[in-house]
Amino acid sequence: MESTPLLELDDNVLEIVVKLLNYSSMDLFSEDARKIRQWMIKQPHFPEVMADKKIKNFLILNKGSVEKSKEKIENYYSLRSLLPEIFDNIHPKFSYKENVKASIYFVPLPKLTQKLHRVFFCKMRDPQSAENVEPVDGIRLLVNIQEIRMMEDITYGDVFIFDCKNIPLRWMLKLTPMLLYKSLVVIYKKVFSNRLKAVYVLNAPLYTEKIVLLLKNILKPKLMERIHFCENSDVLMEKIGKEILPVDCGGKAKSLEELQEMLYQKFKEREDYFTQLDKLRLNNDLKPKRLKNDEMFGLCGNFKKLEID
């Protein structure tokens, strides 16, 4: 079966990103990735040794820090047991996928920006169907997209576009502080560490202000400054470009419907990979010592602020 071309990458993207991480050569970057692989081999409690592409993406996400990459890889496996409400039924083959697909467009755009940022577009597809979708299902979708990216993508940051038109208020009220914390802080920061460069919000209803107040309790001021409320899509044309944006937003790229079909086809192609991910659990009986990320949830309701560079 021919692979679905979900994410477009030029041949020199990895080399450019490695230079941005201040490596003087590709050999040094590859040597750091090798160090992480050798470390993984020596961890008796790990369920696998990651593919080289995935190890290199962890290294990129952690700005070339071998030690931070090790910490995030440990967290990556730990979370699958610590967040069963998300990971026990996360495989794209489960029924939640159809509900999400019917109600929400949430897709990565194929082309990178000039600054090598990956853009994501989120828009309500069917407000009535959205009543059957729990926000946790959206988190599952985001994690599954990230899993695809760890194997197939290379970027230097993320940009999110949220078109809030027709989002039901009852659905927005399901976005509890704890759910936002688990998705933004625990998963986004403590595992994947993506560089959040900008968030653009279109057609924001009045009640969006309450969501912003929730975010202020979680996000660092520097990150809040990257959230932009837009009266129209003109700023997106300037900051992102017509060639990248979907036609639904005045751009020249594929429609959200086409991109969604490509995404779910990719999930189908990667079904064996997701089945393998379901089996990945740490063997705590073999863990050499207690690690600092064991305190991942020891906050007792006091939300630490999230800072992503």
Rank of each mutant, 00 (worst) to 15 (best):
M124N: 03
D52H: 06
Q114S: 12
M151A: 13
T155H: 09
P127N: 13
K111P: 00
S69Y: 09
I161C: 08
S69V: 04
E134L: 10
V133D: 01
D126N: 14
P135H: 12
V133L: 06
F87V: 00
V100K: 09
I104G: 09
N62E: 00
S78F: 13
D126M: 08
S103Q: 11
I148F: 05
V143M: 07
I148N: 03
D163M: 04
Y96R: 02
I55W: 04
L79D: 03
Y156T: 01
S129C: 15
V66S: 11
P84T: 02
F87D: 00
L112C: 00
H117P: 07
K68S: 05
K115D: 11
P135R: 10
S103N: 12
L83P: 01
L61V: 01
L83Y: 07
L59F: 11
K63V: 02
V159Q: 05
P108N: 15
S81P: 01
R140E: 11
P127G: 12
I90T: 03
I90R: 09
V107L: 13
R149N: 13
Y105G: 06
L61A: 08
I60P: 03
H117A: 11
Y105M: 10
H91P: 00
G138M: 09
F120I: 02
V119L: 04
N144I: 05
